[in-house]
């Protein structure tokens, strides 16, 4: 992917990608930010990714090391810990061609969600995006493929379970954890015999 070299505004190491995304949103940057997680450097690896912005709203994401774009690209440089963020301003016209590359586009809130795990910032960014962009990421076939991938879903669930238990200790909530949390109301064995039919209604908009 070719992105015109912009004017470097600032480059600094930050604890959290959310801080950079928030600033870029506030200042309505048109340009790009190069993220370089610092932990990877210590391990002798290079991890680097670019997110482009239009008026502060993320448009594209690209992992420059693995050469992968879009949401998968974002995940390549979503490393926790300090990251160097180099903020560049570019003329909107100069970015127009790059922004045509559909495969690299990400929904507005996705960088905040994936790079920083910050749902509120993701929601705020989505709210600030133009109406047409707020609907991105609502692709029914993507939803159906996501739900069809039982292994990936189990991974999300087991990660969340581990995270919940780890945080419970951190917050002193150990004692209220269920002993048999793994068995609690598992939908898999619920048969869905009484799952209700859905009727949106003919006059719904």
């Amino acid at each position: 992917m070719r992105i015109p070299r912009g004017e470097l505004r600032r480059s600094r190491v930050v604890d959290d990608a959310a801080a950079v995304l928030r600033t870029v949103l506030d200042e309505e940057l048109t340009g790009y930010v190069v993220f370089e997680p610092q932990d990877a450097l210590l391990l002798g690896e290079t991890t680097r990714g670019v997110v482009t912005f239009e008026d502060g709203i993320p448009v594209l994401a690209y992992d420059t090391e693995r050469e992968v774009g879009g949401r998968d690209g974002l995940e390549g440089f979503a490393v926790t810990g300090p990251t160097r963020a180099a903020v560049h301003a570019v003329d909107a016209d100069a970015l127009a061609d790059a922004h045509e590359v559909e495969a690299f586009r990400v929904p507005p809130g996705e960088p905040a969600r994936v790079l920083a795990g910050d749902e509120r910032l993701a929601a705020k960014t989505t709210d600030a995006a133009p109406a047409a962009r707020r609907e991105e990421g609502r692709d029914q076939s993507a939803v159906e493929s996501f739900l069809a991938d039982a292994d990936a879903i189990e991974e999300i669930r087991s990660e969340a379970r581990e995270e919940a238990r780890a945080r419970a200790s951190e917050w002193g909530l150990d004692d209220v954890l269920a002993d048999d949390a793994d068995d609690a109301d598992d939908a898999d064995d619920a048969d869905d015999a009484d799952a209700a039919a859905i009727d949106v209604g003919p006059d719904s908009r």
């Binding site: 969340a160 379970r161 919940a164």
Partner: peptide
């Protein structure tokens, strides 16, 4: 799914 797993971890 995540929020559900958190809830289940607490027996909810």
């Amino acid at each position: 799914l995540k929020v559900q797993e958190y809830a289940h971890s607490y027996g909810t």
